[in-house]
Structure formats: structure tokens, C-alpha cells
């Protein structure tokens, strides 16, 4: 029975199948919201209200010619999208979406899974850099270098921000952190600064406006993906969507109280809470313009990191007080 459960977990929910379907849905939601903010309709005719649009994009790209530039480092060029996609899919498995008893420490929920998911979510950025490097194109190389620069800017605030709820709950296991806040819902309000920092850092991690510096169309054409076409581009796009889902799921687990109540209610909670995060991300994308890279770096270090530190200090003091 346990074996079956694990296979279900790996392949269906929250594994491969669910992440694929849900990430396309999230992309659709994101595009619709963005269009609505701009007074447009967004996709309309592919499926009901364009709901199948991201799937159509994906299938079309899969069926397209796959060009590998002559000058590119071919092995690396081909391997990078698969590596990056694998890392975010693995990260997806770590989300505490099924009800886990504290005693049952499986392969996907263990002490320290918080650290692992944070690392797995950081891996795609390195992959982007390698992709840009392997393409042997000027735009790609610049895009790749920008990815790394950005990584240094948002990664520290991100880690500091996710530290706060963990310290409060006294655990490095996401299921336990979620359970702690389910038991004490009011404590969620304590982490409000960390939540804000984490959402902004996630937006930067996803490289969306205002932090879409690495692949700013108007500056470096397609950034690290300039030379990518066909199914590798499809993988990169899918990867970005899944990263959004997993990132939103992680934030929901840490800051919004997780997904209680077993399989079905947990699923509903997961959808509702990740959509809240996605809504914030889409709104942020609509109302801002692109920053320049040094502005992004100074913004991270001047505002995000200190804010996250402040939050940590608050949490530590409160924790002492409450005990």
C-alpha cells in the first residue's frame, strides 16, 4: 500500500502530472490577470476562455524544429534544460501537500527539507547561466551573467525570509512548520515582513517584471534563451511555470499555514493558497516597470535583506517572550 502511495505521490499528486497540469493553469491565470490589468482580454479561444493556451504553446514548441547553433557547446546546450526541469520537479515533490504524521518521515518529508527545496529552487538559475554560456551568443552570455548577478541579490533575502517561520516553529521540516501554524494561526501575522520579502524574492527568482533583467526583450532580445528553440524552449517555459507553482507552494506552506486536512481538503487549500501568491505576483508584474540590474542589487541589499533580518530579530525575541 505504501509503495502504491509513493508512486501516486511521485507521478500523480503532487508529482509530474499534477505539476504539469497545474502549472499550465497557473500560467493561464497569470496571463489573464496581466491582460485584465492592461484592459485587454487575454487568450480567449483556445479552450474555454483560453484555458488550454499554455498547453497549446507547450505542444507547439515540442513539435517545432530544434535548432542547435553551430558554435554552441552541444552537450551542455542539450543537457541544461533537462537538468533544470528535473531540479524543480524534485523540489515539487518536497511540498507537504499530503497529510504527514510527524512520526512518518518518508523520502519526501524529512527534517531539513526546507533547506533542500530552497537549494533545488536555486538550481535553475545556474542552469540558465550555463544555458546562456553554452549558446555562444552575445545576448545569451549577457543574459546568463545577469542571471548570476541577480542570484546574489535575491538569494540571501530569500533564505533569511524563510528562516523566520522556521525559527518560530522550531523546525526545519515544512510539514512541521505548517502544523505549528495550523495549531497557532495568529502567529502567522508575526511573519508578515518575511512574507513580503519572500514574495518579492520569488518574483526575482522567477525573473518576471520588474526583475526580468536577464531576458529583457528590449535589451538582450531573449536573454539566456535567445538561441533556444523548439522543445528545449518548451522545457524552459514549463520549468518557469513549475518553479512558480513550487515557489508559491513553498511560501504558502511557510507563511500561509500549509495545506491541512488530508488529501482532498489539502488539495483545495493548496490551490487556493498558491493562487493567492500567484495573484500577488501577477499584480506586481502589471504595475511595475523593469529595474536596472544595479538598482535591483542595491534594492535587495538595502531593503530586502535588512527587512528580513529585522523580521528574524523580531521572531527571536518573540519566541523568547512566548516561552
Amino acid at each position: 500500500m505504501d509503495i502504491l502511495k509513493i508512486f501516486l505521490y511521485l507521478l500523480v499528486y503532487p508529482g509530474l502530472l499534477f505539476l504539469f497540469v497545474y502549472s499550465t493553469f497557473v500560467e493561464w491565470i497569470d496571463r489573464k490577470l496581466y491582460a485584465k490589468f492592461q484592459n485587454r482580454m487575454g487568450p480567449m479561444y483556445t479552450g474555454s476562455h483560453g484555458i488550454l493556451q499554455p498547453i497549446a504553446d507547450f505542444v507547439k514548441l515540442m513539435a517545432k524544429e530544434d535548432i542547435v547553433p553551430d558554435k554552441a557547446d552541444k552537450k551542455l546546450f542539450n543537457a541544461v534544460p533537462i537538468l533544470a526541469l528535473t531540479s524543480v520537479l524534485t523540489a515539487g515533490l518536497l511540498l507537504p501537500v499530503w497529510h504527514f504524521s510527524d512520526a512518518f518521515q518518508s523520502a519526501t518529508s524529512f527534517q531539513g527539507d526546507l533547506i533542500v527545496i530552497a537549494y533545488l529552487l536555486a538550481l535553475p538559475s545556474f542552469a540558465y547561466f550555463l544555458a546562456g554560456w553554452a549558446s555562444a551568443s552575445m545576448y545569451s552570455a549577457i543574459g546568463g551573467v545577469r542571471v548570476l548577478t541577480l542570484l546574489f541579490a535575491y538569494e540571501v533575502p530569500m533564505f533569511l525570509a524563510i528562516l523566520s517561520p522556521a525559527v518560530m516553529a522550531g523546525s526545519w521540516r515544512m510539514a512541521e512548520i505548517a502544523a505549528y501554524y495550523q495549531a497557532n494561526p495568529w502567529y502567522l501575522l508575526i511573519n508578515v515582513f518575511a512574507f513580503a520579502v519572500a514574495v518579492v524574492a520569488l518574483q526575482a527568482k522567477l525573473e518576471r517584471v520588474p526583475f526580468d533583467i536577464p531576458h529583457a526583450e528590449t535589451e538582450v532580445v531573449g536573454g539566456a534563451f535567445t538561441e533556444y528553440s523548439g522543445r528545449k524552449l518548451a522545457m524552459f517555459r514549463l520549468l518557469a511555470d513549475i518553479q512558480m507553482v513550487v515557489g508559491a507552494g513553498m511560501i504558502a506552506a511557510l507563511f500561509l499555514g500549509g495545506f491541512p486536512g488530508g488529501l482532498i481538503p489539502g488539495f483545495i487549500w493548496f490551490v487556493v493558497k498558491t493562487l493567492i501568491v500567484v495573484f500577488i505576483l501577477a499584480a506586481m508584474r502589471s504595475v511595475t516597470a523593469r529595474l536596472r540590474i544595479d538598482q535591483m542589487v542595491s534594492f535587495s541589499w538595502k531593503w530586502l535583506a535588512p527587512l528580513a533580518l529585522l523580521q528574524l530579530v523580531i521572531v527571536i525575541f518573540l519566541k523568547g517572550y512566548l516561552q
Binding site: 528590449t218 523593469r290 529595474l291 536596472r292
Partner: peptide, 11 residues
């Protein structure tokens, strides 16, 4: 260039 101009003033 346009972006450069925007950024230049933002700075």
C-alpha cells in the same frame, strides 16, 4: 538606448 535613458534618470 531608450532603456538606458530611463535607467539613467532613475538612478
Amino acid at each position: 538606448l531608450r532603456q538606458y535613458g530611463i535607467d539613467f534618470y532613475r538612478k
